[in-house]
Design a protein around this nucleic acid. Structure first.
Lengths: 118, 118
DNA sequence: ACGATAAGTAGGAGATTCCCTACGCGTCAA
DNA sequence: TTGACGCGTAGGGAATCTCCTACTTATCGT
């Protein structure tokens, strides 16, 4: 096993775009807190027509953030957190910048270059 | 000093949406690696009309990810990483889910609930 | 086989995104 | 003061997003 989370630009776009919607973030939270759920049970939690929520699930699926398993006439959705590890990886080189601010180190090092992505 | 990074749903939408674009992520990387830059120097790096890039800078500004400082007829843009700390905070409750997968602990705990956001 | 149930697809309205060209505003140098 | 420069705003076009109301497909119970 070698690479696990190399995401191209378009993939990152899809990932962040999937997260850029409150309803979809709520769906993720629901799956995280309550475990896998059939589409209907998810939809019941939202004040929105079911087909609309079905679309949101599709966006999450295409971003790799949920998977579906068919069980009879239900489709059980499950959180897939792996792409979120990609987000954390993306975040990592920025970490020292907010650390810097919070610890009051100030803006002293602002111009100090670093290399990370080619 | 009390709360520093409480972001409402709309604010999170704006934040993730700002990150959901390759050009804008590139701008952030540039500011991280090369330090603060005038708008023109940033625009020169992209194969895009300057007003288009100006719009991207506006989106980043409204998400709080960059700040601008006027210096003569230039506007120096600077990375503001604090909102990215919000992203990491948002990410945190999901962390155990991908850890779980990676360490091969398997799907055993998938249905185990946890509480985090109200 | 039939009707009811679970959930996705089709198509469409209205808003937003992402790019462009044209133009306006402030600042500096001569 | 005039002209050039740095940069933003206006406005517009094509594509995409987010919601809706039908409608289709697949499965289950009787």
């Amino acid at each position: 096993m070698a690479t696990a989370s190399v995401r191209d630009t378009a993939g990152q776009d899809r990932l962040f775009a999937a997260l850029a919607n409150g309803t979809r973030r709520e769906v993720l939270r629901l799956l995280r807190e309550r475990g896998p759920q059939p589409a209907g049970a998810i939809a019941d939690r939202f004040d929105m027509a079911r087909p609309s929520l079905s679309e949101h699930l599709k966006v999450l699926r295409e971003a790799g953030l949920v998977s579906e398993e068919r069980a009879g006439r239900q489709r059980i959705y499950r959180l897939e957190a792996a792409p979120l590890a990609d987000v954390q990886d993306w975040l990592h080189p920025y970490e020292r910048f907010w650390r810097q601010r919070l610890t009051g180190l100030g803006d002293v090092l602002d111009a100090m270059p670093d290399d990370d992505t080619p």
